[in-house]
Design a protein around this nucleic acid. Sequence first.
DNA 1: CTGAAAGCGCTTACAG
DNA 2: CTGAAAGCGCTTACAG
Lengths: 340, 340
Amino acid sequence: MILNLTDLPAKMNNHTITAKDVAKLAGVSQSSVSRVYFEGAKVSEKTRLKVIAAAEELGYKPNEFARSLITNRTKIIGLVMKGVQNPFYPQVLKQFTTFFKAHGYSVLFVHTNNEEIQKEDIENLINYKVAGVIITDATMSLKVAESFQESKIPLVFFNRKLYTDNFFSVCCNNLNAGRKIAEFLISKGAKDMIYIAGNTDTSTNQDRQKGFFEVLASHNIPYQKFSSDYTYEGGYNTALQIMEDNVMPNAFFVGNDIMALGVIDALRKNSVTIPTTTRVVGFDNIDMAGWPAYELTTWEQPIVEMVEQTVNYLLAEIHDYTGEAKALELDGRLIDRQTT
Amino acid sequence: MILNLTDLPAKMNNHTITAKDVAKLAGVSQSSVSRVYFEGAKVSEKTRLKVIAAAEELGYKPNEFARSLITNRTKIIGLVMKGVQNPFYPQVLKQFTTFFKAHGYSVLFVHTNNEEIQKEDIENLINYKVAGVIITDATMSLKVAESFQESKIPLVFFNRKLYTDNFFSVCCNNLNAGRKIAEFLISKGAKDMIYIAGNTDTSTNQDRQKGFFEVLASHNIPYQKFSSDYTYEGGYNTALQIMEDNVMPNAFFVGNDIMALGVIDALRKNSVTIPTTTRVVGFDNIDMAGWPAYELTTWEQPIVEMVEQTVNYLLAEIHDYTGEAKALELDGRLIDRQTT
DNA sequence: CTGAAAGCGCTTACAG
DNA sequence: CTGAAAGCGCTTACAG
């Protein structure tokens, strides 16, 4: 018999340490090893210590897949995100990964270009038996959302809500923010206003608009609405077009900051002075809003708090599924800078 | 015997469809079903058709965990990213997820705040037996990187390279870009220059700087170097400080766009006119560089091409591991706008 | 090409 | 509290 020496060491190195190996070294059963690493299982302190010592020596880590095969769940959170071009979202992403990491969860990132998440993305998440799902700035069909409920996978809509009341959502209180912005602009002496909407179909847009118009109407302030798309270019072009066809209003409320920056640049291009001739208010308080080139007055979304609440809800549901539905709305605040 | 009617339907719904179920319906063995769904396995067209039909009827999907338990690999790519605050990276993230989705891979997103990736993040990725790993804008210790090689998990450094030659990396050709920018500024008549570095330790910074200084030296153009941190605030504050202590140079080459925007705002604050009094060139060509408020001259990194090459390499290595190491450098080009 | 069977590394009733 | 054993849903030699 000829020993193949080149194969031998490779084989030995490739042996992965299993619970069985740890059991042998610790002098306990494989079940006991398993119990030490399975949250909620009961083991005596004595065997726990023996197992931990042996595991440390061998460098043992439980195999996640074997575990998932039985429990039908992973320590992965599905994070679906639309529109990463908005600087608001990288911040959100960073916050989420930081929070989840602290709780031992990993983040599976799904990017969608569509307003409504595609079925294949969802199937993928369900396939991976994610512990929970976060949908930011996008919607999904009711039917698809329900498939999560069936699988008892907790789901939360972040910065977007469905009007069906069946799902948990975390938003800024957009209605109230719209109102406060209207009151603020009125207090600054604006006599007529223009609202530039982002994507009209979104709940965030509708709430902001509703609150804003409500207050204007009650003060008999005339207003107009224009629709754009939540991008810089959209804001820029919309403002350019407004200046062609309309008289300059006393103030603009723009659906988000990135559009508002576009509006400001368009106004400046036509030498419209801000805030003397007209005023501009944005929404989000992205970093750029505070830059000297813009100094944009805006509404700050309480991102950290929103993320925290989302994570808390998700972890609670993962631990003990209730399917509780609630539309959580957090306040935020006006940041008064140089454009008003 | 009392039938518990409330429990019954739930139990029936919860039965997940396995290969066994499909086998029974199709009238074949479970192994045959498995072969139909395992790439590379051989089945006759006849049984394939029978299996597909049965699977469709039952809504069968292979369990990824059972599969991974055996193959020791998943269809997940680990994407490690530092510094999501730079608008350059969301673009990169979007590109990667889009490409990988097209190839049936999901992306596990890892955010790191440190320049060097923490060991725990890496262990997590290895634990999940990812098919491959991308490290953007960060480094890792050699020892950790080698643990990927041992596990035969392909690894690529994106927009960063290690000087050990042992790893695959995809970058913009920073050395050449630095040279070209120097030549360009000289051609514009700049007689002395300042280079504002981002993080000095990074390969990207070192290469850009080297190429830039090399050309300046050969033309006997005096230059100074200042160090900052790749953020807007960093650029802003560094420029402010430069103006306090130094005479204004003819031109600034700033390590990335986001810093360059800060530099521009600082110059403007002190009423320094651009490009008449001094000139500014950035790096990356992020969206904002093209905004009317800045119109920044900059070097465009060929992101799509860089991502494409990264994905191609990774997929090739996943399919057939070679451990090939190569520092790939793609050119990019100068975008000549209003700040020069 | 196909099927029966072993085995991947865990969790989890079940007995003791 | 602990161990022996079944089983999660696959892949993969092995025979035929």
